[in-house]
Each structure stands twice: as structure tokens, then as C-alpha cells.
Computed example of a mutant assay.
Amino acid sequence: MTDSINSILSQIRSYQNQMGQNVAPLGDAARSNAISGLGGSAPAQAPSFTETLRSAVAGVNEAQQKSGALAKAFELGDPSADLAKVMIASQQSQVAFRATVEVRNRLVQAYQDVMNMSL
């Protein structure tokens, strides 16, 4: 299970990098300074989970639209849209969509686990 979680986290980081949101994880010293307020400068604001998820979903949407546009261009006989490009774009959008569905399933499962916890 931890392998799948690490895989999903790496995919989210990949989406962040694609969207230009490079966020370096805080080291122990930087984390303790940020928590205690002893750092000389304010820590950089990391994007929220909502922003990260929204950008990941937007990336999946973009990949699906690109795939659909390439497929339509291929069907219409556009010489710039060869079969290899169409198939690669289709597979990329399919993998991105499956990853998004898996993240959603994990979030729903985590929510259900929390709701079923006894106090």
C-alpha cells in the first residue's frame, strides 16, 4: 500500500513540476525554523492541497483535450497528426485519468476510514 501511495505522491509532484510549481521539501532545520519562527526570512508558501489537486485535474483535462484534438485531426487526414502521436497522446491521457481516479479512490477510502473511527 505504501508503494502505491508513494507512486501517487510522485505523480502529484510530477504534475506540480509540469505546472511550474516546484516546491522543495523542507529539511529538518528549515522545518524547525519555520515552526518556531526563528528563521531570518519568512518560509516560502507551499501550494495548498486544493491547488495541487486542481492543477492535477486541469492537467488531466488538458491531456484529454489534446488527445481528442489529435485523434480528430488524424481522422480528418491532417498530415501533421500521425498515428504514433495520436496513440501516445491517447495513452498519456488514459494513464493520467487512471491516476486521478486512483487518487480519488484513495481520498474516499481515507475519508471513510476517518468517519468510521471510534472516539
Rank of each mutant, 00 (worst) to 15 (best):
L53V: 15
Q65S: 11
L26K: 06
A58G: 09
S32L: 15
K72L: 11
P79R: 10
A110F: 12
R31F: 15
S118P: 00
A34M: 10
E75V: 06
P25S: 12
R54W: 05
D82Q: 10
M117P: 02
A29P: 07
L76Y: 03
F49S: 04
Q64V: 06
V101D: 08
V60P: 01
M1I: 11
A71E: 10
V86K: 00
Q64L: 10
I35H: 12
R106C: 02
Q16W: 05
Y15W: 10
R54I: 09
L53A: 14
Q18M: 08
Q65P: 00
L9R: 13
L26P: 03
G59E: 02
A110E: 14
N116E: 03
P47C: 04
N105H: 11
R54E: 14
L38T: 14
S67C: 02
F97W: 01
Q94C: 11
S67Q: 00
A73G: 01
L38V: 03
E62A: 06
A44Y: 03
G20N: 13
R54L: 06
Q94M: 13
V57G: 05
A63Q: 15
S48L: 00
N17A: 14
L26T: 08
R13M: 01
F97D: 06
E62P: 05
G39S: 12
Q109A: 15
Q112L: 06
T50G: 06
A81R: 00
S67R: 01
A56Q: 01
E62F: 10
N105Y: 07
A46C: 06
